[in-house]
Computed example of a mutant assay.
Amino acid sequence: MNNPTIGIDSVSWRDAFRIELRAEAIGLATRGWPVVPGTAPAGDGVSGPVPVHDDWQERAVADSGDVIEWWGGEVYSVLVATGSYVDAVEVDAELGHRAATLLRETGRPAPILAMPNGKWVFLTESGGELAGELATRPGVVRHGMGSWVPLPPTPFAHGVVHWRVKPEVWEWKLPRAGALHGVLARALATLPDNRDSEFHVHAA
């Protein structure tokens, strides 16, 4: 015999989570962040959410009325479209941890996301290109025009996206892309594999 409370609890959880996602999306939109709805995880093979609508780039406008409608009845992920207001740099955990340490030492932390797949994502103002050493490092991805990143509390198959450093820590100001890229480059230079490479080059 089926237990009716299981279905009720599932529906209640879904509604609560949808409301939380919608509240986050509305809060971001009111601050000018171009959020769009993304897919929810469908199984173990899902690597991450993608925009629900084909015309998501046209929909990426900061209008809380649209956001309320989009998140009105579905459990959509929260994505921010990059390239117009916010950009992002996605890195591996080793580089992310070192860069976060350097940022703390400056007293001017950037908003940082932690992904369930182990990636760290640093948010910046739009603009700028990655320096060569960063652009060629495996696993480093710059998200600019035509891309997006998931924001908390977006669900993955094995967890949710969460903040390591929340935007309000810096009063919702985004760091300049060039400055953040410089911190990432300095962090990269301190990693053991890069120090070893530099030693061998100088020794030769």
Results as ranks from 00 to 15, higher is better:
Val183Ile: 15
Ala88Tyr: 01
Asp15Tyr: 07
Tyr76His: 12
Val89Pro: 00
Glu90Met: 12
Phe199Pro: 05
Leu134Gly: 07
Asp54Ile: 12
Glu90Gly: 03
Asp54Arg: 14
Leu21Arg: 14
Leu180Val: 04
Arg108Trp: 08
Leu184Met: 03
Val52Asp: 03
Glu125Pro: 01
Thr124Ile: 06
Gly146Pro: 00
Gly32Cys: 08
Thr30Ala: 14
Thr106Gly: 02
Trp13Asn: 08
Gly139Trp: 11
Gln57Arg: 15
Arg22Thr: 02
Gly73Val: 14
Ala99Phe: 11
Pro155Met: 10
Pro34Leu: 00
Glu105Gly: 07
Asn3Lys: 03
Ile8His: 07
Ser10Arg: 15
Ile6Trp: 13
Val201Leu: 13
Ile68Leu: 14
Asp44Ala: 14
Val89Cys: 02
His97Cys: 00
Ile26His: 07
Arg18Lys: 09
Met1Lys: 06
His202Asn: 01
Arg98Phe: 02
Ala81Ser: 09
Thr5Ile: 09
His181Thr: 04
Pro153Thr: 07
Glu171Met: 08
Thr136Gly: 07
Met1His: 08
Ser12Pro: 00
Thr190Ser: 10
Asp87Cys: 12
Ala23Leu: 06
Glu74Ile: 07
Ala203Ser: 05
Arg186Ala: 15
Leu21His: 12
Leu174Trp: 13
Phe17Lys: 05
Val161Thr: 14
Lys119Val: 06
Pro153Glu: 02
Trp71Ala: 05
Glu24Tyr: 05
Trp70Leu: 00
Ala25Cys: 04
Arg137Glu: 15
Leu191Trp: 00
Gly159Arg: 10
Arg59His: 12
Arg186Phe: 09
Gly182Gln: 09
Gly72Val: 10
Val140Glu: 04
Phe156Arg: 10
Gly178Gln: 08
Lys166Thr: 13
Gly73Trp: 10
His162Pro: 06
Ala99Arg: 11
Ser197Ile: 05
Val161Arg: 01
Asp15Lys: 12
Leu130Pro: 04
Thr190Glu: 15
Ser10His: 07
His200Ile: 14
Trp172His: 14
Gly128Trp: 01
Gly32Asn: 11
Glu74Gln: 10
Thr106Val: 02
Ser77Pro: 03
Pro175Ile: 13
Thr39Phe: 03
Trp148Gly: 04
Val201His: 12
Ala157Ser: 12
Gly178Trp: 08
Asp63Gly: 04
Val149Trp: 05
Lys173Glu: 09
Pro111Arg: 15
Ala100Pro: 00
Leu123Thr: 12
Val89Arg: 05
Arg22Met: 02
Arg137Met: 15
Tyr76Arg: 07
Ser147Val: 05
Pro37Glu: 14
Gly72His: 13
Leu95Gly: 00
Ala157Gly: 02
Pro192Asn: 04
Arg18Phe: 08
Asp9Asn: 13
Trp56Cys: 01
Ser47Asp: 11
Val165Ile: 14
Pro41Cys: 01
Leu191Glu: 01
Ala99Trp: 13
Gly72Trp: 09
His158Thr: 14
His97Thr: 15
Pro109Arg: 02
Glu58Phe: 09
His202Arg: 15
Leu79Val: 03
Val50His: 06
Thr124Phe: 08
Pro49Phe: 08
Thr124His: 05
Asp63Pro: 06
Leu191Cys: 01
Arg18Asp: 09
Asn194Gly: 05
Val50Trp: 05
Lys173Trp: 07
Leu151Asn: 04
Thr101Tyr: 07
Glu94Lys: 10
Val165Thr: 15
Ala204Glu: 06
Trp56Arg: 02
Ala179Phe: 13
Ala25Ser: 03
Ile26Pro: 00
Leu191Ala: 03
Phe199Ala: 13
Leu151Lys: 06
